[in-house]
């Protein structure tokens, strides 16, 4: 297991490095003058900036160095959590990013809990009641989740619960330490919309895997030995398909921790994804770099752990790789 872990960790390195290159290149290929924006000038003031100030900032940003050197400096700084200054807010990028992390974490955790609470029992129930109305309902739910875009579903939910019924606030975020009840009220709609989307995703994988398992040799063997169908399903199939569930939950965790751009936008929820969209509108590239890097590294790292768990649950994998 240790060998597998190390091997898998080593594999992660080139991916992460390539991702950092891609993210760094962002700032090279974008139009615009980083010096002007760092100086707090709009570009139509270009003639107003004194030369010596411009040159000083040019050197401070290391723009006089060759691009690969710039990359190394940038990477070094980034590893220490220094992503430069936000062009819009003129405060360290890391401060802006960190201020948005809690909101996204709360939303991500809440939707993940909702997703698991819906998908796992529903999946098991549908599997046990194979080919009955429960099963069909699960199929319908999966199709609904895949076909209906979250932001549209979110709008309908806002329309019903916030506008027509007036039960819930339609937007925003209140920190839990400020007022826990209002925190929950603000969280419930975006978390449910996002959670149901993820639930459909989990259920879809679960069902494919479940059907896969049903056709495995061991099931046939068990059935041939005369074990009753229900028992086979409970004892063998569900246990095995749990591996798939863990995997898909893991993959979705990465997605949720990065936040959902459309849902955070729809609900004016001040999380990381919303920050990303705002930074994109404003072409605040240091912020974009930091958020994108965070999201991508999150995916890579979570995938790493998912693989480890998967290998732990399924010994065949780790021997095959090792």
């Amino acid at each position: 297991m240790i060998r597998y872990t190390l091997l898998r960790a080593l594999q992660m390195i080139p991916t992460v490095l390539l991702v950092t290159v891609a993210v760094f290149v962002l700032i090279i290929i974008i139009p615009g003058d980083p010096v002007l924006s760092m100086l707090g000038y709009y570009a139509d003031d270009v003639t107003a900036v004194p030369h010596e100030i411009y040159d000083r900032m040019f050197r401070e940003l290391r723009l006089d160095r060759p691009i690969p050197i710039q990359y190394l400096y940038w990477l070094g700084d980034a590893l220490q959590g220094d992503f430069g200054k936000s062009v819009v807010f003129r405060v360290p990028v890391i401060d802006v990013v960190v201020s948005r992390v809690p909101a996204t974490l709360y939303l991500g955790t809440a939707s993940l809990l909702i997703a698991i609470a819906v998908a796992v029992p529903f999946g098991v129930w549908a599997a046990v009641k194979n080919d009955t109305w429960v099963d069909h309902l699960a199929s319908g739910f999966v199709l609904f989740g895949v076909a209906v875009p979250g932001f549209w579903f979110g709008m309908i939910v806002i329309l019903v619960f916030a506008i027509y019924l007036g039960w819930l606030p339609s937007i925003g975020y209140v920190a839990p330490q400020e007022d826990f009840l209002r925190f929950l009220k603000h969280l419930i709609m975006p978390a449910t919309v996002l959670g149901l989307d993820v639930a459909a995703n989990i259920l879809r994988f679960q069902r494919t895997d479940f059907l896969d398992q049903l056709h495995q040799d061991y099931v046939r063997t068990a059935r041939a030995k005369g074990l009753p169908g229900q028992l086979v399903i409970w004892k063998h199939v569900l246990k095995n398909s749990l591996i798939a569930t863990v995997t898909v939950v893991g993959l979705n965790t990465a997605r949720l921790l990065g936040g959902s751009t459309v849902i955070e936008t729809l609900f004016s929820y001040p999380g990381l994804s919303r920050l990303l969209i705002e930074a994109i509108y404003a072409r605040d590239f240091p912020v974009i770099q930091a958020v994108v890097l965070w999201m991508v590294v999150l995916v890579v790292v979570v995938n790493f752990f998912v693989d480890l768990i998967y290998a732990y649950l399924n010994p065949r994998i780790r021997y095959a790789t090792a």
Partner: peptide, 13 residues
């Protein structure tokens, strides 16, 4: 329609 940063950048150029 663009954010004001880009609006001014285009204006400047």
């Amino acid at each position: 329609p663009v954010e004001s940063t880009i609006f001014y950048e285009r204006l400047g150029k």
